[in-house]
Design a protein around this nucleic acid. Structure first.
Lengths: 185, 185
DNA sequence: TTTATGATTGACTAATCACTCCACAAATGT
DNA sequence: ACATTTGTGGAGTGATTAGTCAATCATAAA
């Protein structure tokens, strides 16, 4: 009965299928089962809805990725947990993952609110710690972060495009982490 | 004096800045210095223009990447040349590179004409040859391709975001190839 | 019961957009 | 010289769109 959620879900579905351009707000309202005006009650503009949807998805991902991390984990273990959790999330939430990509390579990127930027700080700090401990050989941390992120993105895309069995997926995920780890250490 | 080229250039500039949605055909015509009707003389629809621009850019990239390859090059040398050329192209053609990303994560992907798909076949075959020679340890070839592509994409994004000096760029590009190579062999 | 507040509606509008049409100009062929 | 094709312009059009608004409805506090 949460209409705001309904609108976000409808927007996600239609935006990923038809693009920002291709989906009028009227269709979103219709898909969500609410009146046209209701959409604008929750989101002042279409742009605001587009950004809000990104923020919402990013928070889900952030929560999912952070939940298993424990203070006593080693750097490698922490990195693996981040990596594996993100990949699993990407597989279980294919549409959301696609929306992130779509959003990030659109001009709306510049509208990301400041509050979201700090989220990836935890990972950058972990990498910096790894570099300080001379575990990670590649520098600077931002470069390592960039490499890992794009690797994640590539593996995810491959897994989704191949529709592998669950077991094969798990194996690939673990192996692919070792691949990246080998590369940066 | 090539109006078709002018239109493509104007479209590239505006699409990357304001998105497909945010740039009306009238603005593209204006930016290109041609009349509204002229645009539709060269491209029947806006969608056709969007796809044609992608095809045009992809052909430029394809040409640039293939031009240095020689038949007697080793697998590794061939791979390096592909990789380095693509990265250099991405740095010299930042806007074009961004357009490729934007296009690929939009619903327009499904409109890519068949003729373009075969272009990346040369690279897949090279990887397959590498696997056959037991040089490349990671399989299948499509997976390797996926990893390399996304790595390229990540490094490019890092280089462009950091605005490194030309010398640092060159060094990073060569090092980053060795990084990927180490990973897959 | 009254009053207040916010959610919800859907008809409405002003603006915009992709695309057409047709007149004319330039190039090209005969 | 003429005919035909091709390129160019820009006003015009019908459809669509984001966003508004006045009016209801639901809920609950006073």
């Amino acid at each position: 009965m949460d209409k705001q959620k309904d609108i976000l879900n409808a927007a996600l579905k239609l935006f990923t299928e038809f693009g920002f351009h291709g989906t009028p707000t009227s269709k979103i309202a219709q898909e969500a089962g609410v009146a046209n005006g209701t959409l604008f009650h929750y989101f002042k503009t279409k742009d605001e809805l587009i950004v809000a949807l990104y923020v919402d998805i990013k928070k889900q991902l952030g929560f999912c990725v952070a939940k298993d991390i424990q203070a006593e984990d080693s750097i490698k273990e922490t990195a693996r947990k981040y990596y594996v959790a993100a990949l699993h999330w990407g597989i279980d939430n294919e549409t959301e993952f696609r929306y992130i990509q779509q959003f990030l390579s659109s001009p709306y990127v510049s509208m990301i609110p400041a509050e979201l930027v700090e989220q990836s700080l935890a990972m950058i700090n972990m990498i910096k710690e790894g570099i300080k401990q001379k575990l990670i050989k590649v520098t600077p941390a931002e470069y390592v972060m960039s490499i890992i992120s794009s690797h994640l993105y590539g593996v995810n895309q491959y897994i989704n495009s191949q529709k592998l069995s669950s077991a094969k997926q798990k194996q690939l995920i673990n192996e692919s982490f070792e691949l990246v780890w080998k590369m940066i250490t």
